[in-house]
Design a protein around this nucleic acid. Sequence first.
DNA 1: CACCATGTTCCTTG
DNA 2: CCAAGGAACATGGT
Length: 283
Amino acid sequence: MPELPEVEILARHLRPLLQGRTIQSVKIRQPAVLEPTSPTCFKRQLRGAKFLGLTRRGKYLLFELRAKTSRTRFVLLGHLGMTGRMFLAHKHRPLPKHAAVVLNLGAKNFIYDDTRYFGRLTLDLTPVEKLGPEPLEAAFTPEHLARELKRSRQPVKVKLLDQSLVAGIGNIYASEALFLAGISPRRAANRLTRAQVTQLWRAIREVLGEAIEGGSTIPLNFSVHDSDGLFYYGSAAGEDDFYTERLRIYDRAGQPCLHCHTPVQRIVQAARSTFFCPRCQKA
DNA sequence: CACCATGTTCCTTG
DNA sequence: CCAAGGAACATGGT
């Protein structure tokens, strides 16, 4: 469940579990997720390396490691795509069907599982260089947002998915932020008023911040104890209901708007679903 | 069989 | 060079 808030929650969860652990061996079951890094290069670099830290940038996870022989630091980049999960599990647990990469840490394995294999676990860091500012940090200002939106005639909803504008907003939170800001997703990015830009800026931060808080304070939303007593990100029974209950507009087509009870509309923009209230978010 | 799915990149077109 | 649109990637759920 990977947009910025979910990735942030995962990073906070994994950080203390990985810190100080050494990779004993590496199993690659789906080489495509390493691209453009080769399996040979990947194994050579990771075997014997130790986890020093873990940070997040947009929807990416940056695993900081120290190499075995050279003692040099390097970064392993992770991305969950649409269906990726990363978690620790006891070494004797059977691997999930779509486990793409398994890092043996001794008693436990670090598993990257991804049904559709759209995600990445790679040594290539170039995607991170193209990202815009972090939406919850000081570099993301209303002025930045205004300047970037001015350059585009695309619908504002589509533009919010551009990771070079601001990093971490995905299809769900784009709809959520526009709903909170009371702006139509169809409005051309460069035609928002100054007041709307400020509203949108505020809404983006509120929606993402709230999702991190909500997800991180309620254990059921993000983890469940497996038979080994280990945390497991995702796939908790009842999680989907819980998760969607927190969303105000996404996936609510036909249901009454929480503000005015007008039926929520679903439209398609850039081949992706957008949800909005035609009354609260007028064009 | 149809359509839908939390993402990104590549290719084409203008 | 840039903006914008669409296909591709691969698998599963309804």
